[in-house]
Design a binder for these strands. Structure first.
Lengths: 129, 129
DNA sequence: CTTGACCTTCCAGTGACTGGAACCCTCATG
DNA sequence: CATGAGGGTTCCAGTCACTGGAAGGTCAAG
């Protein structure tokens, strides 16, 4: 299967698939004309990568997950630990974003939003409190 | 004032300050020995940048905010619009992260987390439903 | 005069792609 | 048989916002 078909089946752009090969996440065979030739297992790996990336795992985490995916002797606790770690990380990000949001919201609330230059948002950014 | 002092006063690392000069966000004078020489207005700009960056504005947004900051004829509505846009953007990010979080949480809930290989998280990533 | 802290420039790397140029392969059509 | 479309290939550069490090210049203190 050529890269175009693999892209369609994995829901990843060809460029990304080549990149994943460059960083050794997939190792497709080559046809005689030099084209990459993806087998079913390759497609499974690509789909796995697409899903885990879209769930917010970094490339290195995906590499770990992929090795667990292909390890018949894996312990599900290892996978669960990664997932829980990621959840904690997401929670931290959400909290930080909500802090920013609240600050911005409070500033915007106090801003008249008219054609005059006086602006509490600018004042805050400038450190004038 | 040398870059070290400017860094201390603006709460930005010297490397970052040099980078901000490279992308033309600040234009400090130069002393005879070639050292950068920051005046009070430069420090204000740097502090402004530090604060707006830490509130989640991109460099280009900071550039806009900075030009508003220094525009005596600005309309506060322009600043408010930027802030509200950023709030919407943050809300979108938070929602997306919470979606991921919930998905991961649901998967982790169903995972025994023991030494057996059977794992709903891996199954989901592999597309086995 | 030397030491050490500070400053300078320039180059390279980060993460995860993405765009583009220049070129090759294959197949259908005129 | 030439040609054009629509694949594929490699390699280089760019993104964003820094950050690290090397090689060297400057300055104040001891």
């Amino acid at each position: 299967m050529n890269i175009g078909a693999a892209a369609e089946r994995s829901n990843l752009p060809p460029k990304t698939i080549r990149y994943y090969e460059e960083i050794k996440l997939v190792k497709p065979a080559r046809a005689q004309n030099g084209y990459r030739d993806y087998c079913d297992a390759d497609i499974h790996r690509l789909r796995f990568l697409q899903r885990s990336r879209s769930l917010g795992f970094s490339i290195e985490e995906c590499r770990t997950l992929l090795s667990l995916y292909e390890d018949e002797n894996r312990a599900s606790s290892d996978v669960k630990a990664l997932a829980l770690e990621k959840i904690t990380e997401i929670d931290r990000k959400v909290e930080e974003l909500q802090g920013l949001r609240n600050t911005l919201h409070a500033l915007a609330e106090n801003c008249h939003g008219n054609d005059k230059p006086d602006c509490p948002i600018i004042n805050d950014l400038a450190g004038k409190i």
